[in-house]
Computed example of a mutant assay.
Amino acid sequence: MSVRARGVHISLPIADRVSSMRFYLDTFGFETVGEPAEDGVPEPLMFRVDQHTVLALIPSGGLGFVLGDSRALAPTGTSECVLGMGVATEQEVADLAERIGNAGGRVLAEAEDRPWGYTALCADPDGHVWQISVET
C-alpha cells in the first residue's frame, strides 16, 4: 500500500528568524506563508516552495522541543541532508549560487558539469546545504 502525501514539509533549525527570512526571500524568492508577527516575520516562519512543498525554518530551541529528549539537533556545521533544487538553465544555477553568496550564504562548490549534471553546492547562513542543478 502506498501513501499519498498531500504535501511535504521540510523543517530546518535556524539561529535568527529575521535574517533567515530575508535570506530566503532575497535568494530563492520563495513566498512566505502566514501573517507577520510583531517582528515582521510569519510565525512559524514558512515558505511555499511549490504547490506541495513547504519549508519551515524553526529556531533551534523550538526544533529541539519538537524532537524531544530522544534526539539532539546536529551540531552547527553538520549537514544531515542535502536539499536539492532544479532550475531550467546553467545560467540560473550560476545566478542563484551568486545570489546565495551575496546574501550571506556560502558557495561550497562553484557551478560546473559533474557526472550527474550541471550543479553548484551552496549553504544558507545556518549551514544547510543546497544543491542547485539543471533539471532535465
Rank of each mutant, 00 (worst) to 15 (best):
E135H: 05
T78P: 01
A72F: 03
V66C: 03
P59N: 00
D16C: 04
A120Y: 10
S60T: 11
E92I: 06
R22I: 02
F47Q: 11
V66E: 08
P59C: 03
P42T: 00
V41Q: 13
D126A: 11
S19H: 05
G104Q: 08
S20Y: 09
H9R: 12
M1Y: 14
A74R: 04
A15L: 07
E98K: 14
S19A: 12
L55Q: 07
G84W: 01
T89P: 06
L67Q: 08
A97M: 03
L67H: 06
P75W: 03
F47K: 12
I132G: 06
L57I: 02
V18Y: 05
G104E: 10
V87K: 01
V49S: 09
Y24V: 05
R48K: 15
P44M: 01
R71F: 08
T76E: 15
A56N: 06
L12T: 06
H9D: 08
P115L: 09
Q51D: 15
E90L: 05
T136G: 14
F65M: 14
S133C: 15
A88L: 13
S79Y: 01
I14W: 01
T136E: 15
E98M: 11
D124R: 02
S79V: 08
H9M: 12
T76Q: 14
G61V: 13
E80N: 15
D113A: 12
L73R: 02
D124G: 05
Q91H: 09
I100R: 10
S2L: 03
G40M: 05
W130V: 13
V54E: 15
G34I: 03
P75S: 09
Q131S: 14
L12H: 07
L12C: 07
M21R: 07
P36G: 10
D69M: 06
E98A: 15
Y24D: 03
S11M: 12
M85P: 00
A123S: 15
P75L: 07
L83A: 01
P13I: 08
L83V: 04
P13K: 08
P42R: 02
E92T: 10
A123T: 07
G127H: 04
A111R: 07
P59A: 04
P59T: 02
D113K: 09
A74M: 05
T89V: 10
D69S: 11
R17N: 01
G86S: 00
D124L: 06
T32Y: 02
S79L: 04
P13N: 10
T78R: 08
R6C: 15
Y118R: 14
